[in-house]
Nucleic acid binder design. Sequence first.
RNA 1: GUGCCUAUGGUGUAACGGUUAGCACAUCAGUUUGUGGUACUGAUAGCGAGGGUUCGACUCCCUCUAGGCACC
Length: 373
Amino acid sequence: MSTYKLIQQKDVARRGTITTNHGVLQTPFFMPIATKGAVKSLSSHDMKELEAQILLSNTYHLLLRPGLEQMKALGGLHTLMNWQGPILTDSGGYQVFSLSKMNKTTEEGVTFQSHIDGSRIHLTPELSMQMQTAIGADIVMQFDDVAAGDSPRARYKEAMERSLRWAGRCKESLVSGQQLFGIVQGGTHEDLREYSARGLMEIGFDGYAIGGLSVGEKREDSYRIVKHICQVLPEDKPRYFMGGGMPEEIVAYVQMGVDMFDCVLPTRNARHGTLFAFNQDPATIDWSKYQDPRPTELFYDRVRVTNEMYQTDQSPIDPHCTCETCKTSSRAYLRHLFGVQELLAYRLATIHNLHFYLTLMKSLREWIAKTAV
RNA sequence: GUGCCUAUGGUGUAACGGUUAGCACAUCAGUUUGUGGUACUGAUAGCGAGGGUUCGACUCCCUCUAGGCACC
């Protein structure tokens, strides 16, 4: 039985639901990132107010702190952070690749040095599953091997094949009632990607992710791969584009049939004073205009609120925005808060950028509902 | 009042009688795609004023100005 239910389609863009232990998710959706058990600068209550449907957290970080046994003793992440909605956890594969320079990958797993105290940790598909079970995530990701964006074909092939074998081990070792997603690898090579997807489908997963993109390759290549793979993946399972992306990328991927997204951009950019603002009413945008990797014009602006030009600007980031930040704070105030490094700057900016991304997803869902035949 | 010391971007400082006066912070602008809020890239901006010595002075000398210290 599938937890995914397809409701409507506009061409290949899909609106549906995913049923989890902690509620029903409306797709397509965006997952704010709570790496270490918190969306940076915000509380679980804030995330509820923002109407975030689901949070993403990280096996890698939580394995380092508080650790496996401690997480078990704490009764899982829902309890720890008092979040009643669904949680998806990343397996740690990507973090080993992106955060830890000193690591050694073998067929067994990855030995890496903790970025906190330098101690050596051996992370395997089995340990990743064990940790994700301890966390109590509703959706868990397979442990995968990620190749850098500029790798030779042989390295992409190796990472893809190893990820496939690890996918099998993850499925075998997972004993709880969690949903497990496989991850398609293979870089920018269509044949490797397709081999990966078919291999995963043979094993059988509750959903399929496209990994290893947005790591330095051209946007045209990402679009080509995602379009192709969405035609290969089964229609009765959710599809998850990992790690991306800019708003216009998400709009394009939804129209290729992707259901799930996560990205650090709204939250990290917020902390650096770069805020997203619609330049038109998102409820009335015809999203079919945004299917190209390089659209001639965008539906939003990026407001760098630390810029000098906003020193005395009394208007909010986006006058049409209904978020707490825009209802209460001027650009001048935000600029001031960044200037004096008040923590409130991070909080207000993060609220706004997440509201932007979540509003974008809501608009896409409504657009599919409106235009579906 | 007398003597001594100091004066280099917004701030704190470095060097040298000889290419384009170095660094840090601040400021300004940019980068950030399954998150090390701590990172990275670029830009703006300076020899207190006047005179002298010298082929050449931010550097040596004199005067002035400002600040610091000591003494009366």
